[in-house]
Design a protein around this nucleic acid. Structure first.
Lengths: 394, 394
DNA sequence: TCCGGAACCGTAAACGTTAACGGAACTCAG
DNA sequence: CTGAGTTCCGTTAACGTTTACGGTTCCGGA
């Protein structure tokens, strides 16, 4: 072999850990703590878990010693011993597009991948925006689940419930929209600044040097995320493409008729309109309005997310690009976050910002094929779900 | 409460599993198999693991019964009992950009997140392309690691070694480039078609209606991935923007001087050049060549990946966009794939295609802040690694 | 003085798998 | 017929945590 040649060329580096695990002592156990304290395993266990039956003095000594020895629970032993299964409630929307279906698929997928297969997912799905969301959260708390993943469509109304869950030691992870100051454990969402900025950048480049105005639809400027996205779009447009004028945002509240009406009006009034950025789910009514106003082919349109009805518009080039919010990844990350916390206190950041994906004509098929894989299994699940009855939560 | 209103509005659907775990029997154990066979746990264990000391007849009976009862090993018990730690070897490049550093960071990060903390990662880093890669693989096999993650820069030369690893029951996962027909367990990479197609789509849109020619650099058309990426770029350009002429690819083999020389020549010869797509790591020499040929500001340039030297070009707009190959995510997925296989035979697809990210002026800071988080911890690690000696592998 | 009951703590049996040890049956050479 | 060697198999002690149960001590009230 030509290993001679490799002298000083190829570095083999073990991790620091390895050395530690080889020469260092093995990880401390409950027994170690008990022994070095002259007490028993039971007491140590009770102290570490704030169970009753331990005097404050010994509890303190145990905690201190645990820290000294660098105790970390052995999860394998824990799961083997108490075969409690984690129950987590997923409170999301039915939704008009496939967005939430895919979020749920991502959660399911991730739950199935948990090695210590002890995760049960219960879905509490609200039929439409704001309908029954509070009650669903209340039900989840009442059911004493171990964790909750939720979509706080109106953060203010859900905030007290999330706070109540936290007080009951039920961690809550928000998806897609944050509920600030609610005591929620974490949030996973698409980075709003990255979304708004890339949309603006693309809009500017797509329009070349053309001047004109650019419209934008949002859900509601009262929601932090939407305001941020608008802000990012605005500032990027202003600094890089100052010749484009950004119009006031159109709020559609995810109501199709509202979106159609307001956009139709805009399209007929602003004859200088060159581009449109649709940040909401309701892109189809916007497209319909543009079609009816006979401006569809004049406009450079950037939408949000990807669902069947949108596909023909992208393929034909009438929608220049769409900012894909990666619902699957959001679901996966949310469950991961929650599980890591429940498993070992969760060391990672509890604020996950995902980068959006850009879908255009060229790479459309790539994303569609990914979805079809998932919807295949999703439909299987839905088949079973459809057979279930609708319950009364009372 | 207003639960009355919610009758038939809010569906609560448990998973099928839940029912199974409630009314169904608990999962079968080794003891169950033994009991129903009138034999002992030891024999069952030996039979299931192909250990010696079991007659062919009983082995067959055990296997059959295990299948009947739907036996699945309890991983918690397994890890608790045999505290074997998984050793996996990561054979990658030193690299000229930060790409491989981030791949390794992703692997480390994912390894740290494994719940049953028993994963040790050994890095075998080749100083440059093709240098010592075979020897590193040989060393990993000789060291009897439990799994290998590798970058087969020249698939043909590495193929026999990967095959040898597979024969030794060491699973191999390839990153970034595939080694087909090598018996490798899996491959994680950025989807080449999606990359090439989105680059072409952006190029076409950025150039507006302008005519002209478009250049492209690749590493080597002999590598499947690069040929595919070129093909996707070509076909997308041809079908959507037929007024643009795609030039023959420039092969730079990741050699900076070669890239500079060939591109400089191109820039001076083709005065109709409108755009340039750099698919290789060596984008800086291309940009230098464009600058020296005084065509930098005339060209629409799309590059690949993101590293410090490239930042000013993006920020100033001289690089219109860059296709980010998500090294961190690639590393994470590679380790996950390997670990899932080692842990329980791996049920998922072993071909992971990631979507690339698009970085432009607008969202540049988002990606930079992500990298800085990671490089902070990376530098800490590197500090420790730097203190290690360089070994001779003989 | 004795009993009841807190409050605190030790003990030991699980959980399912692995791995080492020992024992039975059988073969075969001496 | 005895002893050694082989092949197959049963038994059992780990692994670290959880949990139920039992046992102290100590204090207040009868």
């Amino acid at each position: 072999m030509a290993n001679r040649l490799l002298k000083f060329l190829l570095a083999v580096d073990g991790r620091p850990r390895r050395k530690a695990s080889k020469m260092g002592k093995p990880p401390a156990t409950l027994g170690d703590i008990a022994k070095s304290l002259g007490t028993s395993i039971g007491t140590v266990h009770r102290a570490l878990h704030d169970h009753p039956g331990v005097s404050p003095a010994t509890r303190a000594r145990v905690l201190q010693m645990a820290r000294n020895l660098g105790y970390r629970p052995n999860l394998a032993a824990r799961y083997l011993s108490s075969k409690k299964t984690l129950r987590i409630s997923v409170n999301t929307l039915q939704g008009t597009t496939s967005f939430w279906d895919e979020v749920r698929a991502g959660i399911r997928e991730e739950a199935a991948g948990i090695l210590l297969e002890n995760v049960e997912v219960e879905f509490r799905t609200s039929p439409s925006l704001g309908e029954g969301e509070e009650e669903a959260l209340e039900a989840a708390i009442a059911a004493k689940v171990d964790g909750i993943i939720t979509f706080p469509s109106r953060p203010e109304t859900l905030r007290p419930w999330i706070r109540r869950a936290s007080r009951s030691h039920i961690p809550v992870v928000c998806v897609a929209t944050d509920a600030p100051n609610s005591g929620r454990l974490g949030i996973v969402a698409i980075d709003t600044l990255a979304s708004g900025a890339i949309a603006a950048d693309l809009m500017g480049k797509f329009l070349g040097g053309r001047t004109g105005s650019v419209g934008i639809t949002v859900f509601d400027m009262g929601i932090t995320e939407h305001a941020e996205k608008y802000g990012a779009f605005e500032s990027t447009l202003k600094s890089f493409y100052p010749h484009l004028e950004l119009l006031k945002p159109i709020e559609d509240h995810d109501v199709e008729r509202e979106a159609y009406r307001k956009c139709r009006k805009l399209f007929e009034e602003r004859t200088d309109l060159a581009g449109m950025y649709v940040t909401t789910e309701a892109s189809i009514p916007v497209l319909k309005a543009a079609c009816d106003a006979k401006v569809l082919d004049r406009l450079t349109i950037i939408t949000t997310d990807l669902f069947p009805d949108l596909v023909p518009y992208i393929r034909s080039g009438r929608v220049a690009a769409t900012i894909y919010q990666r619902p699957r990844a959001q679901g996966q990350m949310a469950l991961r976050l929650l599980h890591e916390f429940l498993a070992e206190g969760g060391r990672r950041s509890n604020q996950v910002s995902l980068a959006p994906h850009l879908v255009m004509r060229g790479n459309l098929d790539f994303f569609l094929s990914r979805q079809s894989q998932e919807s295949a299994s999703k439909n299987g699940q839905n088949g079973q779900e459809a057979r279930r009855l609708v319950h009364d939560l009372a």
